[in-house]
Design a protein around this nucleic acid. Structure first.
Lengths: 214, 214
DNA sequence: TAGATTGTTAATCGATTAACAATC
DNA sequence: TAGATTGTTAATCGATTAACAATC
């Protein structure tokens, strides 16, 4: 029987939870845990154990029935599937307060590494923040191509966003994370995603007020 | 016939899009536009017009068939429903790089106002960032109660998060936005939501790698 | 083997979509 | 009235859930 490597489509929601899972698994690994059950992952990540099992099952059969999952091998299987072995290089556009906070976070924390930052302010250019060098906007294309960067984070004022997006797409960027909640024009093969703290707060306000009214 | 004020449950996704819509509507208002169609809102927000109409219909019938929606009255109706007339006061815990970036954003941009910030660092306490005063951690409870703040943003290291969450819940906070992707223990009546830039980047990496493999 | 936990199924729930009747 | 756009419907799609057969 021929077995496909993956189920044909993996749900967005599953992919999002994979980020949780790898974090949990890494934390288990650091604690020296060798074998875990779906229930353990579930508790640590705040989801249900059936969700964990279903999510993992999209990628293959990793568990041992009656026993659980081997932390180490599960981790490396996930890394293998996603082609990411801790080396997720991204670019950052806009080295303001928010931008430099993100660089700082990335040095302290996890898998993502900001390997190049860009700013239009001449005073910031050629400086280094942590290990990240700041280049002028004009060099976006050459640097992105040179380092084969596929993902960019945009932390600039809304008015400048689309202009930069065009440059990025042209340079070969395949996914953009924007920190301003304005729609972007990109080709179909470029992923776009938004993260905006204040919008999320507004959403929470809506949720609370409606709760009172029903 | 008795008409309920709202449909009994409003979908999460609708509520999230309401944030977009109010922004679009405000921008139309500032351009002096009086009357708009669902199609206009849709284009500006990057969704489909049927989605806009369905979303708005959860709250009532605001449009005029054959004509469209009155920008001004639609905006104030939405504000009325959510009890928010531009006055969304929130607290912020942790005045590091990320925290102060958020304060700066809130002064420049939209509806949310950070009316109190907290930090354990004595050197930051009693300073002001923009119009936001920084209080010591010990005063969380008194200040939150004094200003009746219902929503808090947490921008502190993961290890301190749960401790602060307990204090916040105790002080009467009803919604928490955490900037660290670790699960929080809260009572059922407290909303929790997460925003984490680097997790989102990881998610995008997963998405891209899988795209290549299928 | 008996006990335990996985991987999968089928039912349920929720969100999206397009088409169109209602109506300004 | 004719033209236009809303508000609603019903079908489709996608995600969650709990239960359990498979199997270590």
């Amino acid at each position: 029987m021929i077995k496909k490597f993956f189920k044909s489509v993996i749900p967005e929601t599953t992919l999002r939870r994979m980020v949780y899972y790898t974090r949990c698994l890494n934390s288990f690994k650091n604690e020296g845990v060798k074998l875990i059950q779906s229930e353990d992952i579930a508790k640590k990540c705040g989801v249900k154990s059936s969700v964990v099992r279903k999510d993992l099952s999209y990628f293959g059969e990793f568990g041992v029935r009656g026993k659980g999952y081997h932390v180490e091998s599960l981790l490396s299987t996930i890394n293998g599937i996603t082609n990411t072995f801790g080396k997720m290089n991204a670019a950052l556009i806009g080295v303001g307060k928010l931008g430099s906070a993100i660089i700082k976070h990335s040095t302290e924390n996890f898998n993502v590494k900001i390997i190049a930052a860009f700013d239009k302010d001449r005073k910031k250019v050629n400086k280094e923040i942590g290990e990240t060098k700041v280049y002028p906007i004009e060099e976006i294309e050459s640097i992105i191509k040179k380092y084969k960067i596929k993902i960019a984070i945009i932390a600039i004022p809304p008015s400048d966003v689309q202009k930069i997006v065009d440059i990025l797409v042209n340079a070969g960027i395949k996914a953009i994370l924007s920190l301003a909640l304005i729609p972007l024009n990109v080709p179909d093969d470029v992923e776009v995603s938004f993260v905006d703290v204040l919008s999320e707060v507004e959403f929470l306000f809506y949720k609370l007020s409606l709760r009172r009214n029903i």
